[in-house]
Simulated scan of single mutants.
Amino acid sequence: MIFFDWGKSELSGDGKATLDRIATEFAASGKAQLTLSSHSDRSGSSIVNLAMSRKRAEVAAAYLESKGIAPAAIRIVAVGEADQLIQTDDGVREIQNRRIDIQF
């Protein structure tokens, strides 16, 4: 998982380090598909949260592509505020819900 600051789509140093490890493991695995499921917290409107989750996934995908993973091998799933890791009420900022789950 990688996490994002509120209202941001930029990768943190920790996020980049995690994606570097993912790129290395993916290349060694021989797997054909990598899925980035991007989530948001419930601090904005559901439409804005869905768009932000897509933007974050696109940023992560572009970073992985810069590390040699083919664009066709990356699948983006924008989840928005659905499927919260930490259940919160509307309007609550929760960093653990602003995340990308990575599977291959």
Rank of each mutant, 00 (worst) to 15 (best):
F26G: 11
R93T: 13
R54Y: 08
S29M: 06
S45F: 02
A78P: 03
E58F: 03
G13A: 13
K67P: 00
V59D: 02
D20K: 09
P71F: 09
S29D: 10
G91N: 10
V48H: 06
A82L: 01
A61C: 00
E94Q: 14
R56M: 05
A60K: 01
K31M: 10
G44E: 10
Q96D: 13
S53Y: 02
S45W: 00
A28R: 10
I100D: 03
I22Q: 03
R75D: 13
R56F: 03
D89N: 03
L50R: 06
G13Q: 10
D14Q: 12
I95N: 02
D89Q: 08
M1S: 13
D14C: 04
S43E: 05
L11C: 07
A61Q: 07
I100S: 09
R42C: 09
R93S: 11
R21K: 08
L50N: 08
V79G: 03
F104A: 15
V59L: 01
R99T: 14
S9E: 09
A51C: 01
W6E: 15
R21M: 03
A51I: 07
A23W: 05
G44T: 15
I86T: 15
L36A: 14
I76N: 06
Q103I: 09
A32K: 14
L34H: 11
A70Q: 08
E25D: 14
I2H: 04
L85W: 05
F4H: 07
G44M: 08
F3W: 04
L34V: 14
G13T: 15
F26W: 04
I47Q: 12
L64P: 02
I86W: 00
R54L: 12
Y63N: 08
E81A: 11
S46E: 05
K16I: 14
A82P: 00
A28C: 01
Q96V: 09
K55D: 09
R98G: 08
I76E: 03
N49Q: 13
L85D: 09
T35Q: 03
R42L: 07
